[in-house]
Design a binder for these strands. Structure first.
Length: 1007
RNA sequence: GCGAAUGUGGCGGAACUGGUAGACGCACUGGACUUAGGAUCCAGUGGGGUAACCCGUGGGAGUUCGAGUCUCCCCAUUCGCACCA
């Protein structure tokens, strides 16, 4: 045995053993053991592993290895999320086909994963760019098409006019194409969508079935799905005619013209939208103008066509031809409807478009809004700008005329693209009204305000002062009118109270009681008011309660080469024809080198030209590929049977699925996880699987951060320096006082912590770490430094610390080797003859193990490592084992405690640092394979004590300690505590009022 | 603006159901061994005070014999976002 820890040697030996034994192959149906499916999110093969991968897979591996030792039949597979944009970018940069680049990366990263010693069943490896995988994307897509769960409609894309290509959001920088710098245009093109909205209700409800997901992920998903229950109603606009406006049917016509002025059909797409009737979708109004028609329309259709469960049906559709003279809005606060003082419509709304025809200023404003940001956070804080359209509409309940404005804070994409404006009870409307001097009408009051109002009215009426009872809650009315009256002190006081309450409440957005809304509604609370108002609107045929969703259907078409081909053929006579199942997969050619212009697939005649399976005439293949989120929406199910060439999944999913533990980054909290949940439900409804949810438990690990250092010269660009090249200087107490670049010794500035990135030059290459310290140190560091869900701050000295611990472990084991005797067990020892010191050490070891087991179950691995360190500290303290005790004669009890302690410690650490524990296990003669050893459990009898130390408090403050026999009675403990000199000093002459004894822990003397 | 979380030494972080705050590690200080050490080992290390003691878990109230932990009100930071009407 090497006296010095040599990670390189140890890891090579351990990995060779595992390879030879095929140690981590998962058995497909082991009836003797419970199954455990442990999955980490598969990586995109970007080139090499980054620290985030190392962290993710180490956490997953620790869980998998722990479960295996706990007796589970564990499946831990690995694959590659291999389609995607970076491969195309690399292709352009290096003139290499994306396929070759991707496969090279996979080979390299696989080697890296193996060098980290993960217990992965590599026989199940898959890559989403292989036809045997993506064939099933295509097959499943066709099934969804048949059921109407996939359909075609137009969508907006970024278009680079120079390269004649579609750009991803990521490729648009400040509104310009990343390669050409050309101003990016918005274009409408036909795309395929998946009806995730048909599952909105179930996706929302089933979050309750995921109690072991982090609360915040469930909250984010619920917000994303965004169910709101409210009232959708209409303002009529008879006045349109008098304002000499076109009927809305013509307005829509106008909007359509504007969009079709620059049509775009992708190459190979000749038939337009009419052919969609071929497929199961019955959506009639497939042609959609930018912003010209509301979204809830689609949703209503989606709900009707959906297989499986459906959200509740929606109310009548927004304006179409024949029903045009209504402005529809949606609100969750119908109780405030009598407080409407304006309406605001989105810039893209047909009314806005129409009003702008003869109003250049308004047209300019609309253009400005359309160019503006659509990022929520920016919009939320920006100025609420608006412009009147000159139109007005009629309030459905009061019949009052309400002005219509164009507002930059109204989104066309949500609801009907129009809102009612109730400034008194909505912050945005308030801001908008204040800015544009629109009236504010208060219609909801808090209880306090109600009281103040009654009192003020009473007082004024006593003095026979006539006032407007409605306007009394208007600050301006009070100031302009009431304050100017000659009133008694008492009345003035009441008015003052009311006035300051009004000022205090300002824009009152809470629920309250309805006021100033007419006899019928006044006094009602939120729910009653909404019921009454919705009923009245319904009776007039002007609205009803409605459920509104935020979730939109999932557009999966990508105008990109490196992705799964959408299995459709465009035939001049038959239209869009699905590829028959027996012709699947539609194989993507792997030798294309995209150059950034146009669509590379469209240039490949051997791909595009084909024959129509219906009529046998020449036809063109669809050249769009699928969103890579499709690939990752079901890969976890495929791992159960990657070898099945005839079916997407087979009965093995019934054994393995659902995934028991899923581990990945928080950045996937919404899209990937939501799409996977959706996909699962569709697979279930197609009879492919039996479970409702794919991931039982979810762990979202935090990001990996590092210091950021930079210099900013007086002129020129900021330069970032890698923290590895920077020395930090500290004062005597360890406070950071400065940092210098090692190369030139001059100061650099510290810019806090940030995620490891190329742009900030603060990355750490895992490969270097492994080469310098070994995989076990890397694993130990990422596990120990932070709890899994927190961010992890990189620290070179932290790595040193982890390495130091493993060195200590190794040398302790090495020194103990001569007297470790696996035959010694606790029962052979006469504990009454052993030193207290030894018993205390053994107790510490078992106590630490107990804590570690608690923490392991909670997935709090950092404290598991703490416990392991405590165990080693205690072992080093065993009298006969310490280095300083060379020559001391070792008692059997010493040997037993060291043997037992090492044996438990190695097993405890095996999931985290598998190599070093594997080798030491063998070296110490404990067995061949530590991974097959049972999980260590502490011995309760080792925790027992004869004498315990109890804390004594006086008035809750720590004042002393007393040692008492473990079985001492409460009374004797009390006596011992009061007899203690320090305690007596603190009690002094004060009378003891009460003594609280917490058995085994403390005594509190109350004086 | 909305949603979610988090605030504990110089730093990462411990503290099970309210019961010794700061485990474990890093950094730092002193010492040992060394030609040397950025290796290793030993000791110390929340702040203040000579001391007895006092103060300490973002701030402020409260409940309790006792609060990092429970309740209420503030403040700050981080993350997500598609103005969710």
């Amino acid at each position: 045995m090497n006296p010095r820890y040599s990670p390189d040697q140890v890891e090579r030996k351990a990995q060779a053993d595992w390879e030879r034994a095929d140690a981590y192959r998962a058995r497909d149906d082991d009836t003797r053991r419970p199954k455990f499916y442990c999955l980490s999110m598969f990586p995109y093969p970007s080139g090499k592993l980054h620290m985030g991968h190392v962290r993710n897979y180490t956490i997953g591996d620790a869980i998998a290895r722990y479960r295996r030792m706990r007796g589970f039949n564990v499946l831990q597979p690995m694959g590659w999320d291999a389609f995607g944009l970076p491969a195309e970018n690399a292709a352009m940069a290096n003139r290499v086909p994306p396929a070759a680049w991707t496969y090279d990366n996979i080979a390299y990263m696989k080697k890296q994963l193996k060098s980290l010693g993960f217990a992965i069943d590599w026989s199940r490896e898959l890559a989403t760019c292989k036809p045997d995988y993506y064939k099933w994307n295509q097959w499943f897509f066709l099934r969804m098409l048949e059921k109407g769960l996939a359909y075609k409609k137009t969508g907006v894309v970024n278009w680079d006019p120079v390269d004649q290509t579609v750009l991803a959001n990521e490729q648009v920088i400040d509104g310009r194409g990343w390669r050409t710098g050309a101003l990016v245009e918005k274009r409408e093109i036909p795309m395929y969508y998946l009806r995730i909205t048909a599952y909105a209700q179930e996706l929302l409800d089933d979050l309750a079935k995921l109690p072991e997901w982090p609360e915040r992920v469930r909250a984010m998903q619920a917000n994303w799905i965004g169910k709101s229950v409210g009232v959708r109603f209409a303002f009529r606009y008879e006045q349109i005619a008098s304002a000499n406006l076109l009927p809305l049917s013509q307005v829509n016509e106008h909007a359509r013209e504007r969009v079709s002025a620059r049509p775009l059909l992708p190459p190979g797409e000749g038939t337009g939208m009419r052919d969609e009737a071929v497929f199961a979708s019955r959506e009639r109004d497939g042609v959609r103008d930018v912003g010209a028609a509301p979204r809830s329309n689609e949703r209503a259709v989606a709900m009707r066509n959906a297989a499986g469960t459906s959200p509740s049906p929606s109310v009548p559709l927004p304006p179409g031809e024949g029903r045009e003279e209504k402005l529809w809005v949606f609100t969750t606060r119908a109780d405030t409807i009598m407080g409407v003082t304006f309406c605001a419509v989105a810039a893209e709304h047909p009314l806005a478009t129409h009003a702008a025809r003869n109003n250049p200023a308004l047209a300019d404003f609309i253009e400005e809004c359309k160019r503006g940001t659509v990022i929520e956070a920016d919009l939320a804080t920006m100025e609420k700008k608006g412009m009147p359209t000159g139109l007005s509409v009629t309030h459905p309940l009061t019949g009052e005329s309400v002005p219509v404005w164009v507002g930059n804070y109204v989104l066309m994409g949500y609801g009907d693209g129009a809102v009612m404006g109730v400034p008194a009870h909505d912050k945005r409307d308030w801001d908008f009204a204040v800015r544009n001097s629109l009236p504010i009408r208060r219609v909801i009051a808090s209880k306090q305000l109600l009281e103040d109002r009654y009192r003020a009215i009473d007082e004024l009426e006593k003095e026979n002062i006539s006032i407007d009872r409605e306007k009394i809650t208007d600050v301006r009315y009070i100031e302009d009118f009431v304050f100017k009256k000659n009133i008694s002190k008492q009345a003035e006081r009441a008015i003052n109270t009311l006035h300051s309450q009004l000022i205090h409440e300002g824009c009152f957005i809470d629920y309250g009681v309805v006021i100033n809304s007419g006899e019928k509604y006044d006094g009602l609370d939120y729910e009653a008011a909404i019921d009454a108002i919705a009923a009245d609107l319904k009776a007039k045929g002007l609205g009803d309660k409605q459920v509104q969703w935020r979730l939109r259907d999932w557009g999966i078409s990508r105008q990109r080469y490196w992705g799964c081909p959408i299995p459709i053929v465009h035939c001049p006579s038959c239209g869009d024809v699905p590829v028959p199942d027996d012709q699947l997969p539609v194989v993507l050619p792997e030798d294309c080198v995209p150059d950034g212009t146009g669509n590379p697939l469209a240039k490949r005649a051997d791909f595009v030209d084909c024959t129509c399976s219906r009529c046998g005439k020449p036809a063109k293949r669809e050249t769009d590929t699928m969103d890579t989120f499709v690939d990752s929406s079901w890969y976890y199910a495929r791992f159960c049977g990657t070898d099945n060439a005839t079916a997407m999944v087979d009965q093995r999913v019934d054994y393995w699925m659902p995934v028991d533990q899923y581990i990945g980054g928080i950045e996937h909290a919404i899209l990937h996880l939501l799409y996977s949940r959706f996909w699962t439900k569709v697979m279930r409804d197609f009879g492919l699987v039996k479970y409702d949810e794919p991931f039982t438990r979810l762990l979202t690990q935090g990001m990996v951060l590092n210091d950021i250092y930079f210099r900013k010269p007086e002129s020129g660009r900021i330069t970032y320096y890698n923290p590895a090249d920077v020395d930090v200087t500290c004062d005597d107490k360890g406070n950071r006082v400065g940092a210098v670049l090692r190369a030139d010794g001059r100061a650099v500035e510290w810019d806090g912590l940030g995620t490891m990135s190329k742009s900030k030059n603060n990355g750490v290459d895992p490969q270097q770490l492994i080469e310098q310290y070994g995989a076990d140190t890397a694993r130990l560091f990422v596990i120990f430094t932070s709890p899994p869900e927190h961010t992890l701050e990189w620290s070179d000295s932290g790595v040193e610390g982890s390495s130091r611990f493993l060195k200590r472990l190794w040398s302790f084991a090495e020194e103990s080797k001569t007297f470790v005797d696996p035959g010694l067990i606790a029962a052979t020892i006469d504990w009454s003859q052993t030193d207290d010191e030894l018993k205390i050490a053994r107790r510490e070891i078992h106590l630490a193990l107990k804590q570690a087991n608690n923490d392991f179950a909670k997935l709090q691995f950092n404290t598991v490592v703490s416990a392991a360190m405590k165990m080693l500290n205690a072992l080093e303290g065993v009298p006969g084992a310490s280095r300083s005790a060379q020559g001391v004669k070792r008692q059997p009890a010493d040997k037993m405690v060291v043997t037992e302690g090492l044996n438990m410690l190695l097993r405890l650490l095996a999931p985290i640092t598998p190599h070093v524990t594997h080798v030491l296990w063998q070296e110490l003669g404990f067995g061949d394979d530590i991974a097959r050893a049972p999980w260590p459990v502490h011995d309760e009898t080792a925790l027992a004590r004869d004498v315990i130390e109890m804390v004594v408090q006086v008035n809750g403050k720590l004042r002393g300690k007393v040692s008492v026999p473990a079985d001492a009675s409460e009374e004797s403990v009390r006596q011992a505590a009061l007899a203690n000199a320090t305690i007596a000093h603190h009690v002094g002459a004060k009378p003891v009022r009460k003594v609280i004894v917490v058995p085994g822990k403390l005594v509190n003397v109350v004086v």
